[in-house]
Structure formats: structure tokens, C-alpha cells
Design a protein around this nucleic acid. Sequence first.
DNA 1: GCATAATCCTACTTATCCGATAGGGAATAT
DNA 2: ATATTCCCTATCGGATAAGTAGGATTATGC
Lengths: 134, 134
Amino acid sequence: MISKKTKYGLKALTYIARQEGNMVPIAQIAEKEHIPHKFLESILLLLRKSGFLGSKKGKGGGYYLLKEASEIYMTDVMRILEGPIAPVACVSLNYYEKCEDCDDETTCSLNKLMIQVRDANLNVFRNTTLENLK
Amino acid sequence: MISKKTKYGLKALTYIARQEGNMVPIAQIAEKEHIPHKFLESILLLLRKSGFLGSKKGKGGGYYLLKEASEIYMTDVMRILEGPIAPVACVSLNYYEKCEDCDDETTCSLNKLMIQVRDANLNVFRNTTLENLK
DNA sequence: GCATAATCCTACTTATCCGATAGGGAATAT
DNA sequence: ATATTCCCTATCGGATAAGTAGGATTATGC
């Protein structure tokens, strides 16, 4: 199950994408998408620092997409918001960590299944962009 | 990412399946798979109560599979150990819950993507049994 | 019958993370 | 100036994850 952070983040990105380049203030997204204002603020901050969003302060300011919606892939968004796409770190492409309880990963009984799950999810996320959510 | 409970549970089931019907005591699994004994105990208890395992107390006792490994589907095991397979409750087949922040689920921008993710995972788990992990 | 080996069960602890909030600071438009 | 908006750090309560404790219960073999 994905976190609310991820869910809110995806909804916010979609909302912004629909405004076609206009500045979108946090308050507007929060109200329309029923997301707690301050929580959303921290999520948009993260998305800005991660290179998805630009922002402008002051009256008339807000957030906007830095790239075309069709160039924003779910693989990248999910990795920032949710973390690893793989179900276990030892088969993660971007967040690899050695397995503590395994003597040998290549002979681990779960390895194949975990890779299948990872690839099934990657396949979905690689073929979905923000444009597809609009 | 799956929990350690799930990972340990799957490893334990695989280990038991490999013993071809013999009684397997907790201590043996814990040692060979490097799983904390008491933690494993609670997991096996759950798997027994869920109908996957049988047990026998006393000397020479232990756990054994109640069904053929080829009849134990990952969909069922994962739902017990990890919970919903769907990434959000509002597209879950077995753990459905209404979405709080959505006015209308059918028009939610995330709905399609979440269903795709759910189905991708279901497809893997439906086509994998414990026999495949042996 | 008794020691031993195993599961059964409830409760507890401890640490971590999630979701959310607080409170001000800094920039910008009018 | 002032209102508006994002920026940043810190904090907090609650839930969940991971693991532990300790004894009760049941079965075996001598």
C-alpha cells in the first residue's frame, strides 16, 4: 500500500498538470483535492527539490511543472515519493542493499519472485507519465 | 516494500515445503534461515491459523504443509502476511475501503494507474505457487 | 510417571515511521 | 507598507513493525 504522501503528491501533480502552465497556489490544490494544507506544502517542497516543480513566491505565485507532463515518468515520481519500486532492497535497481538474512542472494528462494514483482511494477510505471493521469 | 514478517513467512513456508512432508520444528527453520526464533514463532502461528500449516506438539513435533505446495498460491499467502495486494484500499478486491479524499472514485485521476498496478501484481501472485519457490 | 521437547498464547517493549501541525522567515506583487 | 505566497525547521501523537518474555499446554520416550 502506498503512503498518503505518495497519493497526495500524485494528485497534486495531476492537478497542476491540468492547469496548463498557470501558477497554482498550494491553498487551491489543498482545497480542491481535500489535502491538509501544511502536509501538502511539505510534499510540494520535496517535489520542487527533486526537480519536478518550479515555484514562485508572492501574490499570483504558486507551483508549475518544470517539464511537459508527458516527460514526467511515474518511475521517477514514485521513487521520490514512495521510495524503492522493488518489494525488497536486495533486488532494487536504485536503492540496492544487501540482504542480512541471506547467505547468497542468487540462491535465495524469494529472489525470482521478488524480481518478477519488481519488473511488473516497473513495467507499469515506465509506461505511465503524468500526461496519462490528466 | 514488504515487511520482514512477509519475507520470513515466505522463507519459512519454502523451507517447510522442501522437507517433503516431514515435521519441521521452529528452531530448525530459525537457525537455517537466520530468523529470530520468537518472531518466527508468531508468524508460523498465524500461518497455521490461516490454514496453510498444520502442527504437532511435543517431541518430534513441528510444522507441516496442509496442502500440496503447488496448491498454495502467493495471492493467498501475501494477503495474510502482507495484507492488500492493491496499492490503495479503494481498488482492493479483498480489502476494499472507500477513499476519504475522493469525491468520486470513478473519476479519480489515480484510479486507472492503481488498478494497473494491482493487476500487475495479482498477475504475478496468481501464477506463482509455493512449488515455484522450492 | 517424569523429563524433555516442542508448540501455544498473551502480553509487553522498543524503535521507527506516518501523518499532520506549529511558527516563523523570506520573497514578491500591488 | 501590506498582503500574499512559498520556504524551512522542528515537533508531536499515534500507529505499526520488529522483536522479546514467560509461562501454559501437549506429546514422546524411557
